[in-house]
Structures are given as structure tokens and as C-alpha cells.
Amino acid sequence: MNILIISVNNELTDFELWQNFLKGDRLALNEIYNRNLSPLYHYGMRMLQDEEVVRDCLHNLFVKLWINQKNLKPTNNIKYYLISALRNTIINYKNAEKRFQKVELNEAETFDLKFSVESEYIKKEEQQEKMLKLSEAMNKLTARQKEVIYLKYYEEMDYDQIAEIMDLTKKGTYKLSARALEALREVLNVDKAILLALLMAWKR
């Protein structure tokens, strides 16, 4: 299936756009693809660090969505739905390749949290230095700690969504996030308010 880059009404809500897609509207599928390709690609690259494989997983994901559209449920948050689906697609790929024994992510796997320090927000030397230190501190986290930080502060998902994506309980997600924040706070030697401010600035 070739996905055409054609735009439809950008004012449609996620729920409306998804409903159009479920009715077999190919333009709606293209719009879903256009709106969500960037976050999906970046998330996939952080899990796999292999551009060709990530693109294959994305292609397979959208083909599967189109084939199974009549069996899919409504959603009012398409990005969350697709990230969850992509995560499962990548895990299935890893299992098929026999790279990993477990279906779920474990501490031995990688989740890349490198990010650019070239945005307008951090052009000042002092701020750039803080963000570089944050990047270095991120590397000391486990793969699952990195993933929960990414989903929470970069993709701005809530704990219920993160719990479902990562196959955790909501309580387990809170604990994982708290441990990750505490580890970052200790490495950076800053209080929690400053750490949260840095994380909020990360996406800008």
C-alpha cells in the first residue's frame, strides 16, 4: 500500500478523523499519517536505533491499520493509540528476529534519549550547559526509566496512557517515574522544581 501525502481538514478532532478512517476514508488515513509520522518515527528510533527497520515497522503498522480498520475501536487520542501500536510492532519484530527472549522491554534493552541542544530556547551558553548535563544524566537511567521520562515529558502523556503503553500498573508507572526523577535529581544535584523546569524545556 502506498501512502499518499494528501492533507484533509486540519480542524478535525482526533475522534472525528479516526471515525472517518474507520469508515474507509483513505484521505483520513493519510492525514493520520501526516500528523503523527514525526513522533512515531522519533519514538521508534529511540527503541531500535535503526532507521530502515523503524521505517519498515511504521509501514507495516499503517498497512495493518488499513487492513483491520473495521475491527478497530474509536479513539480521541490518535498519537497515543499509534505509539502503543508501534511499540507492539517493534517488540514483535525483535521477537521474530530472536534478538530478545522476552516480549516486554527489559533492563538489558536500550532506549535512546539523546536530544538536540540547538533550539531557540537554549541558545544561551548557561542554558545550553544545563541541557547538556541533563542529557548526560539521562544516560545513567535504565531503558525503562528513559522511556517513561520520554513519554511523560516529551510526548506529554498521562500516567494512565503510559501504564498501558508500557504494560505497567498505574502505581508501577508512578514508581518508575519517581525513581527516574530522583536519579536525575541526584546526578544533577538540583532540587525537583529545577529538574522539572529542565524537562519541560526539553521539547522546546
Rank of each mutant, 00 (worst) to 15 (best):
L48C: 10
L184P: 11
K64W: 01
M1C: 06
Q128Y: 08
T89I: 07
E126L: 02
M166N: 15
I32M: 02
E11S: 08
E109W: 02
E107Y: 05
T169N: 14
K102A: 09
N2K: 10
Y150W: 14
N189Y: 03
T173Y: 00
M157T: 01
I5S: 11
Y33M: 08
V53D: 14
T169Y: 07
L141W: 00
L113Y: 08
E51N: 15
E129H: 04
A180P: 04
L181V: 05
I91M: 08
T169V: 05
L188Y: 04
Y121I: 03
V148Q: 13
W66N: 13
I165F: 02
V8E: 01
L181I: 07
M166I: 05
I91E: 14
L141D: 05
I149F: 00
N92R: 12
F111K: 11
N139I: 04
K140T: 13
N36H: 15
K124D: 11
L113I: 12
E126H: 08
N36C: 15
N2L: 01
E182P: 07
A108D: 14
D56W: 09
R46Q: 12
L184W: 03
R185T: 01
A137Q: 02
N36R: 15
N68K: 11
C57T: 06
I78M: 02
E109H: 15
V187G: 11
N34M: 12
Y159S: 15
Q101M: 10
E11T: 05
R144K: 04
L12W: 01
Y41L: 01
V53Y: 01
E156R: 10
I32G: 00
Q161D: 04
N30Q: 11
Q69S: 10
D167G: 02
K146C: 13
M45S: 10
E155T: 01
L4R: 05
K171A: 14
N68C: 12
E52N: 10
N68W: 04
K94I: 03
L48M: 12
M138N: 09
S38E: 08
I162R: 02
K94W: 00
I67Y: 11
I194T: 13
I194V: 14
E118S: 11
E97F: 03
S119G: 10
Y174F: 04
S116P: 11
L48F: 03
L199H: 15
K73T: 15
K130N: 13
A197C: 12
W202V: 10
A180N: 09
E31I: 01
Q145G: 13
A197L: 09
A180W: 00
Y81W: 03
K114V: 14
E125F: 04
I90V: 05
N30C: 04
P39E: 03
I83R: 02
D191C: 06
E147V: 02
S116W: 08
N139W: 11
E186K: 12
E164H: 11
S119Y: 04
K192P: 06
M166P: 10
L40S: 09
R99Q: 13
K124W: 08
K23Q: 04
T13C: 09
M47V: 09
K124Q: 09
E147D: 05
N9K: 03
V190N: 07
N92P: 03
A137L: 00
Y41P: 01
L196H: 15
I162P: 00
N9P: 05
